[in-house]
């Protein structure tokens, strides 16, 4: 078992004829993911890395029965791509693109609210169910099928954690990068709830950072609903307020958004909070024993 994606997930890659889209579509397929189609308006009928390309999402879904979309479309056209994916009938949209205007995402989030379409991202590494399906840009080889679920707002920091879990011999079930933007799709609580229900997942690593209050919401959820251990690290204890630290969402603008405050709240909610990012894996081993 796993969450959200598995070996029967069928993926369309939007923006497959671009450099990034093409490269990663190939990498995902090599990992074993069913990449069944690509979409680039105006390039229908061609093939990219042997994958059939369609002009529209509607066509691609009708012809291939795809249920998931992976988006590499440039930021200024990305909102349109997400709307098109949602209208085509896919149920999961994974958006890798970085730099989408916040207002565009405000519209997207409002439009998806109350529907059964789920969005992961934008500005994220994607999602991987280890040994089954890689839908994103993470390096597959660092993962090992195992017992721990991972949720993170960051990219390479997630790889760091995955490597630690692999080295500890714990491995992972599914790893989800929810992205570093202020307004996006699924949040910590959505994914925590899925991991709590997943019989294969025994513990969850949650990687947060400064800015926003998603970690505070997560803490409330951990306290009320999580029976499985949650190990958490919050990046940015040294980040000065008012400065954007790379991710558009990683900026402290008000109370409750600092790393120290988030760590404190998570700790009191019963999460295993680590202040050393090199010790996340070993802390999970402790928590599971």
């Amino acid at each position: 078992m796993s969450i959200l994606v598995n070996k029967s997930t069928k993926v369309v890659v939007q923006g497959i004829t671009g450099k990034e889209g093409g490269f990663h579509a190939g990498q995902c397929r090599e990992y074993g993911t069913q990449i069944v189609a690509g979409v680039t308006p105006g390039k229908g009928g061609k093939k990219a890395k042997g994958i059939p390309v369609f002009d529209t999402m509607q066509e691609a879904v009708r012809e291939t029965k795809a249920d998931t979309s992976l988006i590499f479309v440039p930021a200024s056209f990305c909102a349109d791509a997400i709307y098109e994916a949602a209208a085509s009938g896919v149920k999961l949209i994974v958006c890798i693109t970085e730099g989408i205007p916040v207002n565009d995402m405000v519209g997207v989030k409002r439009s998806l609210a109350g529907t059964d379409v789920r969005l992961i991202g934008p500005n994220c590494p994607g999602i991987i169910t280890v040994g089954e399906s890689k839908i994103g840009i993470m390096p597959g080889f660092i993962h090992k099928r195992g017992r721990v679920g991972v949720i993170s707002r960051s990219g390479t920091l997630t790889y760091e954690v995955v490597k630690q879990l692999t080295d500890e011999g714990l491995g992972q079930t599914t790893c989800v990068g929810i992205g570093g933007d202020p307004v996006g799709g699924m949040n910590f609580v959505d994914i925590l709830a899925l991991f709590e229900q997943d019989p294969k997942t025994e513990g969850v690593v949650m990687i947060g950072e400064i800015g926003g209050d998603a970690e505070v919401q997560a803490a409330e959820f951990v306290k009320k609903n999580m029976k499985k251990p949650v190990v958490s690290f919050i990046a940015g204890i040294t980040a000065p307020p008012g400065r954007r630290m790379g991710h558009a969402g990683a900026i402290v603008t008000g109370g409750g958004e600092t790393a120290a405050e988030k760590m404190k709240i998570l700790k009191s909610a019963g999460a295993h909070v680590v202040d050393n990012p090199a010790q996340i894996g070993s802390r999970m081993t402790q928590a599971l024993n």
């Binding site: 990219g155 690290f233 990046a235 204890i237």
Partner: peptide, 21 residues
Amino acid sequence: VNGAGLAMATMDLIKLAGGEP
């Protein structure tokens, strides 16, 4: 560092080791 999250975590780690980024 490569990646924003890892870059922040690296700063934190330097602080934890007794330095200042």
